[in-house]
Simulated assay, not measured.
Amino acid sequence: MVQIFKFLLKSSKSPGRAHFRPTFLDNLRLAVRGGHGGNGLPKYGGVGGQGGCVYLVAKEGLTLRKVVQGLKDKRVAASSGEDSSKASIFGRRGLDQKIEVPVGVQVYDDQQKLIADLNEHAATCIVAGGGTGGCTATNFLGRPGENRTVNLDLKLIADVGLVGFPNAGKSTLLKAVSNAKPKIAAYPFTTIRPQIGTIEYSDLRSITVADLPGLIEGAHANFGMGHKFLKHIERTRLLVFMVDIFGFQLSPRHPHRDCLENVYALNKELELYDPSLLEKPSVLLLNKLDKEGAHEIFSKVKPFINDLASGLDQCPEELRPKQVLKFESIVPISAINSSKIPQVKSQLRRTLVRLAEKQFLADEDQVREKLKQRVSLVGPKIT
């Protein structure tokens, strides 16, 4: 009987299901402390060594999950500076502590003040300075290093950001056009964390695509996980809106909205979160055109989608944006139809190339204007 009770009371840990295990991390809080400065030596006027500092270095291909795995208790401290002595009048500096972080990390202090934006490979920033060594100005006493907490906020950097409501087919499209392997199912909220895929072309050109979990109404006010997902589109060069041609209904408690109303709803969410996002170049993909009745719907809504401002009068007031999107192109597709995928890949590339050309010409004009100004300032006056 005792053995039976022991067996029943015995607990065994079973691993959680894979899709419930957290694999994506985009925010990390760290306690950092610079090293204490070494003490000076009053008898000989010796100066203590400066304490080491804690600094961050951006590195490609890294994730915050890997950063956490390499740290202990999310605390990082640099070593103290060496005390001055008869053998070493000038104490040696303490060793610095380097933390490698993903490219795209923004560093904030406890007051949410931005310290640094590490958006390039090898970009660095000191998050905790070391204390000064003891000298005559400090009565030969070493000073403590900086001690504070910093927040690392990761914003994905990708060429293209996929935006849409749940079950629009974003994950299906990402899997079809890239090397990513997102979870796909016929129900909303299949994607619960951002996915990154790479589109590779025959001439070795590649484009990165970020598939963000489906937004819900009120995402701008952080309903659901609004801010957690919306922040990742801030650094994309091109926004790709994906909308189900048959519309979307979040739940029985929510009204069913057609594809045009969904376009306005996405427009409104971005406007309320950050109006500057509407200035980003964007492409609209109307999905599920392979189903019966889809082409009839497309022919009805196409004139309004080409000019969103013309349909504002018919748009429900709660969905009506102040500023409407202007799409670079509108592409009817079927994410599950492989014959349509090359068209999507070509369209994305053409759009990005066109944007790069515009940026190059704009930069060239700015350089010319600056050169003209310099020449007019230093050149001889012609009378």
Rank of each mutant, 00 (worst) to 15 (best):
L260E: 00
I245A: 00
V378F: 11
F246L: 08
K155Y: 09
Y44P: 04
S178E: 01
A176Q: 01
L377E: 14
R320H: 07
Q195L: 14
D258R: 03
A356E: 10
P15V: 15
H19E: 13
Y187V: 08
L28R: 07
P255I: 11
Q69C: 11
Y187W: 14
L64F: 03
G40D: 06
K170T: 02
V47G: 04
H220I: 12
R320K: 11
V243Q: 00
K43F: 12
P281Q: 11
I192Q: 15
G38A: 13
L215H: 02
G130K: 00
C125F: 05
T138D: 10
L319V: 07
D307Y: 07
I207P: 02
K155E: 09
V32W: 01
L325H: 07
P332A: 03
Q343R: 12
D96S: 08
I99F: 03
S338G: 13
P22I: 13
L325K: 04
H121G: 12
G45S: 08
T191E: 03
L56V: 03
A219N: 04
K10T: 01
R257D: 09
T191S: 05
D365G: 13
L377C: 12
I333W: 01
P255V: 13
F90Y: 15
A122W: 13
M225I: 10
I199F: 06
L204T: 15
F248A: 04
A210F: 05
R65T: 14
K175A: 15
V209Q: 01
V57C: 08
A116N: 03
G218C: 13
E318I: 12
H227C: 10
T124P: 07
S14K: 09
A335D: 04
I216M: 05
L352I: 06
V47L: 10
A210H: 04
L270P: 00
F165K: 00
G37D: 02
V263T: 06
C259M: 06
G45T: 09
S251H: 09
V243G: 01
L278S: 02
Y44C: 14
A116Y: 02
I330K: 01
K113G: 12
K288P: 02
L64A: 06
N167Y: 06
S202I: 08
L28V: 10
L71N: 09
S338Y: 14
F246I: 07
P321K: 06
K10I: 00
E364W: 11
R148P: 04
T383I: 14
H121I: 09
G214W: 03
S299H: 13
L260D: 00
Q69N: 14
V209H: 01
G164T: 00
K300M: 14
Q112A: 13
E317W: 11
G45L: 06
K10L: 04
H295Q: 15
T138P: 03
V103K: 03
E296A: 15
T351R: 05
E318T: 10
C125I: 09
N147Q: 12
D96M: 01
L325I: 07
N27V: 15
A116K: 02
T236F: 06
V107L: 08
K291A: 13
R205D: 11
P182I: 07
Q111W: 08
Y273G: 04
K66I: 12
L95G: 05
K280S: 10
L162P: 00
S12V: 08
V331S: 05
D153F: 11
A265Y: 00
L348Y: 00
K231W: 06
P213F: 02
V54S: 05
R237P: 00
K155S: 11
R368H: 13
L71C: 07
